[in-house]
Amino acid sequence: MRLIYGALLLCFASVLAWGSDEERKLEAAFLGRFANYIEWQAKSQEHFIITLIDENPFGTILDKLYVDKRIKGKTVLVRLVTKVEEIGITDLLFITLTTQKERLEAIRYAQEHSILSISEARGFAESGGIIQLNFVDQKIRIKINYDAAMRSHIKIASPLLSVATVLQGGKP
């Protein structure tokens, strides 16, 4: 009986893992797609840099996806850092920090350096992050804090805004 339960649990876990894996791939693709609708302040670095702070939920997905791709005409460089101080120059910051305090620190850094901040954390957009991604019923939902983008000197094109829930003046 335990064996059966074990087998069922394994199947359920693998289904969840598969679902999660598909979602990650889609989320990874979205990061690059966002870039097409975003206009940053001019930056002089050679690569388009995607920085992940704290943990890398994508594994090797990002590396594999962008190895031969270009974003904004530049080759893509994926970095992983653990602390805000390590962020340095980047275009896109994917925040997986678990505590609110750390996230706010990362958000502040991103605003000051005109970096597009993205996170899956609940209340991320409301707390000053630019893009919040969530999966609801296996469908991705995008929430954009337009004021935060403006404060970061980042312009977001209307097509992207049209597919997202946009927070403006702290309200959707």
Partner: peptide
């Protein structure tokens, strides 16, 4: 062109709106 973003981000609602 208008619906590209909707398809790109698989947003049924905005696609429907368009």
């Amino acid at each position: 062109t208008n619906i590209q973003a909707s398809v790109l981000f698989r947003d049924e609602i905005s696609a429907k709106k368009i």
